[in-house]
Structure formats: structure tokens, C-alpha cells
């Protein structure tokens, strides 16, 4: 099935490193590869510090890729690229940031915040056109056009996240990197923002890379999920398959730890702990393996055989 689908974004062996103050280098993202298909919501899940944001920032080119490639519709977009392509990508790939409280410029009015991206792409527009675009983007995220003249601190968390979404939408993107868009929001507004993201996706045929640490939210909204641990993807599968047959011990530990809003389940549950030492690397090294039907897992041959057997015997 994946063969026929259009790939919007492909990462090949992506590595992101940071130079440390002491002089060393820290590899935050190690050899990450995956493809995102047009119209899907691809989830990237892992714990704090696992490298999720670093990947997102590399895709929108805030961070440099230290090696590997990032392909947008088959064309390399990391490193030095032609001006034309650069202009296209600046528009077509947008990011929604993790913390709506910190990510908006406090001293700018909503009007400027939402249209900032337009100034950067250098297309000449009349003031009237620009204002009309801001008004439209605000309406699309359920805010009133008159909010344009206000400052971010006058808004609630949910409204601020809507402003963040509006500033991405105004660029008419094709791919949106949503970095934990609801983690910082209150319970009562999470559902609103999730619904909004889904509705926009349906209306505009957008593709999402949805970054989160909360697997319960990711399960609800994504088509496929990649699980990342310490900069490495350990498992990737269609969402329901991943929950039906979690294979990698890290994925299993992560899933077992999510609290379910169901006391009968919670009281009997056993949380699994991931011990990296459980992998026996003496015989062969782990490799990125398809154990069937597009369910990928980082495993050596012995482990892969065991995983295949587990899938065959049913959950």
C-alpha cells in the first residue's frame, strides 16, 4: 500500500549533533530514517530529551542536520539548497511549537505574529491583502478577526495555541510539524485543539508530523507512529498495529506506563521497565527490520525471529 502513496517527507539516516561547551559533541539524533505520506498524521513519540524536537527543528531547518538527508517530495532540503526550493520549503513546511506561553513574541501584536512568515518569503502584497489573510487565518482557528490588534498575554493558553496554529496556516503549508501542541494546555481545552487540528487537516488535506510524549493522545490522532529512544527510532508501525503488537521492550515499557482513566485497569496493571541491557548484542548487531506488513523494529536476527513469532501467535 505504501508503494502507491506519495511521500511528502523522507528522512534518511538523519543525525543532529550539538557542540557542547566543554568541547565535545552530543548526538541528539542518531541515524533516524522514516517517510511521511501525503495526508497522514505521523506520530513521533518518546520521552523527554529523546530528540523529538531536534528532529522537528531539523525538518523546518532551524537546526542543521550534521549528516544524513531530509527530502521534501524527493528533493534534498538540508544544507545549501537553491533559492527557489528554499522559498518553497519555507512556506510549505510549518511548525507549531511546544509551549504556547513561550513561543509567541510578547511585544508583538497578534496581527504581526500571524503574518510574520509572509514578510519573510518576500512576496509583495498590499496591506489590505495581508490583513485579509490574517483575518481568514484567525477565523479558521476559531478566533475573531478583531483579536489581531491584541497582544499575546491577553489570551488563554488554548487561544494562544490557536494563534500559533493560525501563523502556520497563513503560509498555506503542506506539511505541519506539530511539536506537542496540546501538552501545555489545560484538560478542558485539549479536545478543542485536537478537534481543530483534525478539522483543518480534513479541509486542507494537510500532512502532520505530530510530536508527543503522551501515547494516549497519539493513538487517537495518528495513522502511524515511530517510537524514539535516546535519539534512535526503535519501532515504527501503523497505530493500531503498534498498540496491538508492541514489540520493542522500550515501546512496551512506554505503553505500560501510560495511566488509563479506568480504575479497574489501573489497579491491576504492571508497569514494565526498560533495561537496555536486555538486548543480547554478542551474536549480531541490531538492524532496522520489517517484521511484517510495514511493522519495523530495531532488532537483531534472534530478536526479530522472536517478534515475528509473537505477531503470528496473536496478542
Amino acid at each position: 500500500m505504501s508503494g502507491e502513496r506519495e511521500t511528502v517527507l523522507e528522512l534518511r539516516d538523519l543525525e543532529v549533533s550539538f557542540r557542547l561547551k566543554g568541547g565535545g559533541v552530543f548526538k541528539a539524533v542518531k541515524g533516524v530514517s522514516f517517510s511521511i505520506y501525503k495526508g497522514e498524521t505521523f506520530g513521533l513519540v518518546g520521552e523527554s530529551g529523546s530528540g523529538k524536537t531536534s528532529i522537528g527543528r531539523a525538518i523546518v531547518r532551524i537546526n542543521d542536520a550534521s549528516s544524513g538527508s531530509i527530502l521534501y517530495k524527493g528533493r534534498e532540503i538540508s544544507g545549501r539548497i537553491p533559492k527557489e526550493l528554499d522559498r518553497e520549503v519555507v512556506r510549505k513546511i510549518q511548525m507549531i511549537f511546544q509551549d504556547p506561553m513561550a513561543s509567541l513574541n510578547e511585544r508583538a501584536k497578534v496581527d504581526y505574529i500571524v503574518s510574520e512568515g509572509l514578510y519573510n518569503i518576500g512576496v509583495k502584497r498590499s496591506e489590505g491583502e495581508r490583513r485579509a489573510m490574517v483575518a481568514k487565518a484567525l477565523l479558521e482557528v476559531g478566533l475573531l478577526p478583531e483579536f489581531a490588534s491584541r497582544f499575546p498575554h491577553e489570551f488563554s493558553g488554548g487561544q494562544r495555541q490557536r494563534i500559533g496554529i493560525a501563523r502556520a496556516l497563513i503560509m498555506e503549508p503542506e506539511l505541519v510539524v506539530a511539536d506537542e501542541p496540546i501538552s501545555a494546555l489545560d484538560v478542558s481545552i485539549r479536545a478543542q485543539v485536537l478537534n481543530l487540528l483534525s478539522a483543518i487537516q480534513k479541509a486542507k488535506g494537510l500532512t502532520y508530523l505530530f510530536i508527543a510524549h503522551d501515547l494516549s493522545v497519539v493513538r487517537f490522532i495518528t495513522d502511524r507512529i515511530a517510537v524514539i529512544n535516546k535519539g534512535e527510532i526503535v519501532e515504527l508501525a501503523e497505530t493500531e498495529e503498534l498498540f496491538r503488537n508492541p514489540l520493542h521492550p522500550y515501546t512496551r515499557a512506554l505503553i505500560s506506563a501510560i495511566p488509563q482513566p479506568d480504575p479497574l485497569v489501573e489497579r491491576k496493571k504492571v508497569v514494565m521497565v526498560y533495561d537496555p541491557k536486555c538486548h543480547d548484542c554478542s551474536t549480531d548487531k541490531p538492524a532496522w527490520t520489517d517484521v511484517g506488513g510495514g511493522h519495523f523494529v530495531l532488532a537483531n536476527e534472534k530478536e526479530a525471529d522472536a517478534y515475528r513469532a509473537r505477531i503470528a501467535s496473536g496478542p
Binding site: V187, S188, I189, R190, A191, Q192, L194, N195, S198, A199, S216, V217, R219, F220, I221, Q260, P261
Partner: peptide
């Protein structure tokens, strides 16, 4: 009702 865990995929979540 607004919990994603209790939602049905592909349908909007209940929201307050």
C-alpha cells in the same frame, strides 16, 4: 467525555 482515550478515531472529541 473529552478524554482522547474515550474518543472514537476519525470523529471529533467531545469538547467543553
Amino acid at each position: 467525555s473529552s478524554l482522547p482515550q474515550l474518543g472514537v478515531k476519525g470523529r471529533p472529541l467531545y469538547s467543553i
